[in-house]
Simulated assay, not measured.
Amino acid sequence: MKNVLCIMTLLAMTVTAHSQPKEVSYADIVSDPSSYVGKPIVMEGTFAYAEPMRESFTIDQNGALIEVFYRDLPGSDKEFLLAQQQYSKTLLTVSGILKQYTNKKHSYFVNATSLRLENGAAPAPSSLGLVAYSEILSNPGRYVRKPVTMKGSFVYSEPLRQSFSFDQGGNIIEVLISDLSRIDREAIFSQKKHSRKAVTVSGELLPYVNSAAKYYINASSVILEN
């Protein structure tokens, strides 16, 4: 019986080991693409530049430039990437699915599922100045149609409107989340009504067309605190 258990344990360890994404170099991929395309991989490289319109950034791996699409990453990761200076040389480890461009032979990109820094930590949210809703009401010209960051507590979501609302000192602010990744939207819609979970929202402050003195946020990132 002990021998059977040992064999089963070894088999489980073998399956687990093989299921872990393999860290690869771009040279490995080019030399044997069929072993990697369409499969999970891990790549390391230094930050080169971001292209927000494509929802991607590019890493440099010993002179080879690899595009990484970040649309499915959490909002805090996107903030971190977009705050990077061009060719900052920040060392990053990207996990995701390797894909081949349909219009380019022998050229590949990554659909990212996670992002890590050199020390193994996840990117920290940017420390943007927080705005109070009372400040907006007292001086709307300073904030309307401009990027803002606000903090409050989760109240409820409205999936049909692709939005949720949070409470800040008794003021209820609606946040449109249609531009966020699917992962971020699902996390928001899974929150219980009046959960009071702390939430930090960054995005463009806009006025309602039918209520000039009331405002909402078109979110670029939403961070739900644990």
Rank of each mutant, 00 (worst) to 15 (best):
G203W: 07
T93Y: 12
P207W: 14
A132C: 04
N103K: 09
Y87F: 12
Q168D: 14
G75R: 09
G203Q: 06
A219E: 04
M1W: 00
D60T: 05
S163R: 08
Q162I: 00
V37W: 04
S19R: 11
N119H: 03
I59E: 08
K2F: 10
A17Q: 06
I188A: 03
P147W: 03
V68K: 01
G129L: 10
T93C: 13
G45A: 06
P21T: 05
S95G: 15
S19L: 09
D32R: 10
A17V: 01
A124N: 06
N171I: 05
S25Y: 02
F57E: 10
I173H: 11
I172G: 05
Q86Y: 08
V110R: 03
A12S: 06
R196C: 03
S153R: 12
I41T: 06
Y133N: 03
M43S: 03
S165Y: 11
H194D: 15
K2T: 09
Q191M: 14
E158R: 13
G170R: 07
N111A: 14
P123D: 01
R54V: 07
K99L: 13
T16F: 06
V131G: 01
Y215I: 04
T93R: 15
M1P: 08
F47V: 06
L11M: 08
G75C: 08
S76N: 12
L10Q: 00
D77L: 07
N119M: 00
T16S: 10
N103I: 05
G203K: 05
L160D: 10
G120C: 02
P21Q: 10
H106R: 12
L117K: 13
L115C: 08
E55D: 12
L5R: 02
I177E: 07
T200P: 09
F189P: 10
D32M: 05
I177P: 07
R71Q: 14
L82D: 01
K89C: 07
V24Y: 06
K192S: 12
S195D: 04
M8F: 00
L65Y: 15
M13T: 00
V42P: 04
S107E: 15
S88P: 04
A122W: 01
V24N: 09
I41F: 05
K197M: 13
A198S: 12
F166Q: 08
Q86P: 02
H194Y: 15
T9C: 02
S202C: 09
N3G: 00
F189V: 02
S126A: 13
T102C: 03
H18S: 14
E23N: 08
Q86C: 05
L176K: 14
T102K: 14
K105C: 06
Y70F: 14
R161I: 00
I188K: 12
V37I: 12
S31R: 08
P125T: 10
R142W: 03
G170M: 08
K2P: 00
G120M: 01
L130Y: 04
A12V: 01
K151P: 00
N210A: 09
E67C: 04
S157K: 09
S95M: 14
P125Y: 03
R182C: 04
F109A: 04
E186R: 13
S76I: 15
A187G: 08
V155T: 11
Y101P: 15
E118N: 11
Y216S: 07
Q61L: 05
V30D: 09
C6P: 00
S56A: 15
L92Q: 13
I177S: 09
V131Q: 04
G170N: 11
